[in-house]
Nucleic acid binder design. Structure first.
Lengths: 247, 247
DNA sequence: TTCATAGTTCGATGATAGTCGAGTAATTTT
DNA sequence: AAAATTACTCGACTATCATCGAACTATGAA
């Protein structure tokens, strides 16, 4: 009997400690072993063992800088696989208020590897399709002529993006919204631009993203995108009070 | 810290026996527990335990008919997750001749849910496009006037298909060929017709499909489709001799 | 009824693998 | 140079879980 080759990779993900580390890395950052061990609440020895296995299994890659070893996801397909698993994972009931806040923050906006996901990511794609700046084509999004113009105006270097080997604009299933947001080089570039503009910020300690006041205004002006107000500044203030976000 | 809930589903998939059963069910059919146990080479007791866990975990659903209990994938997202894992799983070197044969059989022809995939599925689509019986349109295929006629002659009830809620003819990315084959109601109907004609047969114990001698002739006559000879009748005979296929 | 088949539940067993303590190596700081 | 930091390797312990034999339920056939 041929053992399916998904077993190895699935069992790697199917461990609480390793999954915790993977979820941290899903933010797209490189993190040192030390920090990943703390995040997973295990000793450095154990973490080291897990990290070695995930590198061996092709999930992670690492680079050494001095005595530090920084780990990150091996490629964007790993991120997409993690998202796909999230999509079929039963939503666990949250236990504490803090977890509830964290959950809501994640649903509202988060990074998926290196692009924007969650309510904001999906709403943005909807608007782009509605304005016919993008079109769906199989597993990808493609730019219309108007879209070409628009992204250029927004400060995206489309030629530079197309130069790379990476997929241009790929669909990625959103586990919280159960619909598609944009992955690929274009998704990453737009997200990067939003960070540069100060419209979104990372919420320390996780993958959650905060939309700044300037961001709410900018998305409204530039996209005509009015975000649902249920993720209010009120909640954001609570996150800060709980220490989940440093004010 | 919120424990990521992908752990549960990933660890469910990350077991050789369960993964074997899932890969069988990725063929799209409902299968009885008995058959799944044989496919995974485990006793019915063990299989029963695994199946219960996968139902509990939301991967499978079951329906009872008489004393039989048929299991199938809970939804298409489960299939997508399995495909996504497949995409990041390292291609294992095949150890035995028999594994090599099974791998070649899967690449040559297999079912993806309920439609034809692999080399044959992609080659068939190519021919249909070349003959202008089908055209590509976004993420779908559409029939031309000639195609309408042709599929009718082939014994496909197009009106019946269009009556359903399902997408008519959708593109589906093929993991082995890295190109599109046809999913949707039409893809399923054509595959079903090929089974009825005895042109293709399921190879017991997996998702692989065997093209019969009649099938080779039929595909040649009706489609002008000459399949690559590297999957020869010689190999097919070996499959039969190894007991992988019941002759 | 009697027998056979399909499937499950329970309990015992055995192997896998996650965990951490101790020791080693390499780099930065004092 | 010594101390502190970061990370890895090895070995032992332990808990989990896949596995199967035996017993049980339910459906279908003779």
């Amino acid at each position: 009997m041929m053992i399916p080759n998904i077993v190895e990779v699935a069992s790697l993900i199917g461990d609480a400690s390793r999954a915790s580390m993977l979820m941290c890395l899903l933010g797209g950052k490189s993190l040192p072993a030390n920090e990943l061990a703390r995040a997973a609440r295990i000793t450095p020895q154990t973490a080291s063992s897990h990290l070695a296995k995930m590198v061996e299994g092709g999930l992670l890659v690492h680079e050494s800088y001095g005595r530090h070893r920084y780990y990150r996801l091996a490629n964007s397909e790993v991120g997409q696989a993690l998202e796909a698993l999230n999509a079929i994972a039963p939503q666990k009931p949250v236990r504490s208020l803090r977890e509830s806040d964290e959950s809501r923050a994640l649903h509202f906006a988060r990074t998926c590897y290196d692009h924007l996901a969650g309510e904001v990511g999906v709403a943005w794609i909807d608007k782009m399709l509605q304005l016919v700046l993008l079109k769906e084509q199989g597993r990808n999004f493609v730019l219309t002529a108007e879209g070409e113009q628009w992204f250029g105006d927004f400060g995206i270097d489309l030629d530079g993006i197309r130069g790379g080997r990476r997929h241009f604009a790929r669909k990625c299933l959103d586990w919280s919204e159960r619909r598609y947001h944009m992955a690929g080089a274009l998704g990453a570039a737009v997200t990067s631009r939003l960070f540069d503009l100060g419209w979104i910020e990372r919420i320390p300690g996780g993958r959650a993203i905060r939309v700044t006041d300037r961001g709410f205004r900018g998305l409204e002006d530039k996209f005509g995108l009015t975000l649902s107000s249920d993720f209010s500044t009120d909640l954001q203030r609570r996150l800060i009070r709980n220490g989940f976000v440093e004010g």
